[in-house]
């Protein structure tokens, strides 16, 4: 699905993504974890073609990524919903741009609102919603486009613990039902273990470790010992690699 080769990107003088290589097969998931400022968002923007690489390449389904892909859904760090559009209008936007017929838009958006249990919010503005509700709308806005790849940038970091777990379950369910590949950027270790089939540990623009997570997708994973063991391993790995960076260890 995704193939990334020697991907490098710099904002002016500061190189923030350095020689990154990895592959993600169709229907799989990848969690990218690392301290803030390590280049996670930038990497995701490169995968979304919101930024152009300075060197290296992103290939999706065998095609070199040069412009925004129709079938990539993107959920940005703080939702990116348009405050001047109602929930319903926010969801229709992507479809309208793609020239869908009106009755189709009504059908798809109606179904998505129902699936995400946000029907009664259709006529509300984003400012009237709770964090979890906004997050559902943001997911809905990406899903109406029937993406085969979903890119998410710390989508749940502003949510309380319980809501966050609910949203993680929702993403997992969608992934399993629709065979959707996804990449999730997070700084939450539990989230990386729960949602990453592969877990990529990043630091200072580089990939320092790729971990295969054999427990991914297991029912009630959160209640199992393996869940915590893998978290422990990940934590040790990140602490070891960031030795000397006290600010991160105390977080």
């Amino acid at each position: 699905m995704i193939k990334v080769e020697n991907l490098t990107f710099a904002y002016q003088a500061e190189t923030v993504v350095k020689e990154i290589n990895f592959e993600l097969n169709a229907g799989k998931s990848l969690a990218i974890i690392g301290p803030s400022g390590c280049g996670k968002t930038t990497l995701l923007y490169l995968l979304a073609a919101l930024q152009k690489p300075d060197s290296g390449a992103v290939t999706i389904n065998g095609k070199n990524l040069t412009q925004i892909r129709e079938k990539t859904g993107v959920i940005l760090q703080d939702y990116g919903l348009f405050p001047w559009k109602t929930v319903y209008k926010n969801l229709t936007l992507g479809l309208k741009i793609r020239g869908y017929e009106k009755y189709k838009i009504t059908k798809i958006v109606g179904q998505t609102l129902k699936d995400l249990k946000i029907e009664e919010l259709a006529n509300n503005y984003p400012a009237e919603l709770s964090g979890g509700q906004k997050q559902r709308v943001a997911i809905g806005r990406a899903l109406v486009l029937k993406p085969d790849l979903l890119l998410m940038d710390e989508p749940f970091s502003a949510l309380d613990a319980l809501t966050r777990e609910k949203m993680q379950n929702l993403i997992l369910k969608i992934h399993q039902q629709q065979k959707l590949s996804f990449v999730i950027v997070t700084h939450d270790i539990a989230e990386a273990v729960f949602l990453g089939q592969t877990i990529m540990v990043m630091q200072a623009g580089k990939v320092i470790k790729l971990i295969d997570n054999q427990y991914f997708g297991e029912e009630k994973l959160r209640e199992k010992a393996e869940f915590f063991l893998l978290q422990k391993k990940l934590r040790q790995l990140m602490q070891f690699k960031t030795a000397g960076d006290l600010s991160y260890e105390t977080k």
């Binding site: 979304a48 925004i68 129709e70 993107v74 348009f82 559009k85 936007l93 992507g94 741009i97 793609r98």
Partner: peptide
């Protein structure tokens, strides 16, 4: 972030002006 959001939805310049 709204410009990034708009572009990620595939909006062109005309849509970006009006939406």
């Amino acid at each position: 972030k709204y410009f990034a959001s708009a572009r990620s939805l595939g909006m062109g310049s005309k849509d970006i002006y009006f939406q």
